[in-house]
Amino acid sequence: MKTHLKTNFGPHQPNPANNSKIRFAVVALLTLSSAIALPSCGAPPPGSTSGENPAAAGSTNRFASSRSSEKQVVASAPQSAPAPISKPANADAKVAADTAKKTAAESPATAPQLIKKAELSLVVKSIDSSTKSVTDIVKKQRGDILAFQNQKPPDSSVRQTATVQIRVPQEKLETTLDALAKLGSVENRGLTAEDVSEQLVDSEARLRNLRKSEEVVLKIMDRSGSVGDVLKASEQLSNIRESIERIDAQLKSLRNQVAYSTISLTLEAAVSAQQDPEPSLGLRAQETWGKATHSVSELTLGLFASAIWLLAYSPYFLVIGAATYGVIRFKKQHSVPKISEPKPPMTVDS
């Protein structure tokens, strides 16, 4: 594709002031024509003017000479530094947001919900003093003692032991174990954890669904309908609320177990338990005499108290006795004596 520009110039005197204007117009026209022309259009080889008008060829040569002079002027001018490319104002904010999203995607959403249980066995010098120290440690760590058992063994060859069930906040678990371990020699120390994150999430989702169902049933009950529909909705509402209360109780129990950890502490004495010495014969005889005299005094007081009770109720006893005697006497006086029939005479056979 070729672009031809044809201009006619009449005879005129050259004017220095108009030359610069003409050069600027020529440069603008050439720039516009090069931008409009397609890249596939090739330029004719230099010196090839076949098929062209001689006047057009001459004008083209003049335009080319003017453009070359303009290029020389531009080349001789000092080159200015290119202007820096300005970034959009929100580019940094967008990069920061993308970085934050990537970090949040890589990191876990929530921490795992764990139920922790610990076991600790200690050998101590004294069970009683160690028990007091355990109580002080638990109070300091804002915990509670759930159970305590201390039994002396029947045999002196067996060591005395005590068991303590402790509950402390989960964040205080390691600190409490370290403090308890300092009371004696550690024989056993263990820790178990159960992840209940899925149970909590599932229970919370079920609870939300049940609450939405409760709202729907309440809206249905508000509408006018038959008595049977209202009764069915009421029964369904009762079942939903029962399920809500049950799941809510399970959630509270799980959260409480997560918030507080339990410690099973076993204390064992370093030496075997010492049995109390058996009392002597004289001490036993003295205890027996004291028990016997106490029994006699108790019997005497009991008989004296019985006599007082009998004396207090004696009028009633006299009335009852007199009535009984009168009834018996009356029966004897009015009783009919029995008549004995005569026996037939005995005959002797000769």
Score class of each variant (00 low, 15 high):
195 D>Q: 03
274 Q>D: 11
242 E>S: 14
335 S>G: 02
205 A>F: 06
334 H>A: 06
30 L>T: 09
115 I>A: 02
335 S>Q: 10
40 S>C: 02
69 S>K: 13
124 V>T: 02
189 R>Q: 11
276 D>E: 13
198 E>Q: 13
179 A>T: 10
263 I>N: 01
315 P>A: 09
230 V>G: 07
71 K>G: 08
125 K>L: 12
49 T>H: 14
134 V>W: 03
298 E>W: 05
269 A>W: 00
220 I>S: 15
308 I>D: 07
2 K>W: 11
181 A>K: 13
227 V>P: 03
310 L>I: 04
211 R>M: 11
270 A>T: 03
283 L>I: 00
329 R>H: 02
250 Q>M: 03
50 S>M: 05
162 A>W: 01
115 I>C: 01
3 T>R: 08
266 T>W: 00
227 V>Q: 04
55 A>R: 12
99 T>F: 08
233 A>N: 05
342 P>R: 12
300 T>N: 12
39 P>E: 09
69 S>Y: 14
69 S>E: 15
195 D>A: 08
216 V>T: 09
109 A>L: 13
347 T>N: 01
33 S>Q: 09
148 F>E: 07
182 K>M: 04
184 G>H: 05
80 S>C: 02
180 L>H: 04
169 P>Q: 02
185 S>P: 00
47 G>W: 05
153 P>D: 01
279 P>A: 14
21 K>D: 08
202 D>Y: 01
50 S>T: 06
334 H>D: 05
243 S>E: 13
74 V>Y: 01
256 N>P: 01
106 E>F: 03
101 K>I: 07
222 D>Y: 03
172 K>V: 04
220 I>K: 14
294 H>N: 13
280 S>N: 08
79 Q>R: 12
122 L>V: 04
80 S>L: 14
89 A>K: 13
192 T>W: 00
287 E>H: 10
94 K>Q: 09
79 Q>W: 04
174 E>A: 14
257 Q>P: 00
83 A>R: 14
183 L>D: 00
39 P>T: 14
205 A>Y: 07
78 P>N: 09
172 K>R: 12
303 L>D: 01
211 R>V: 09
49 T>L: 13
115 I>H: 02
331 K>L: 09
136 D>K: 15
246 R>Y: 10
341 E>D: 08
54 P>G: 05
184 G>N: 06
342 P>M: 11
58 G>Q: 09
111 A>C: 02
322 A>H: 06
283 L>N: 10
2 K>S: 12
46 P>V: 08
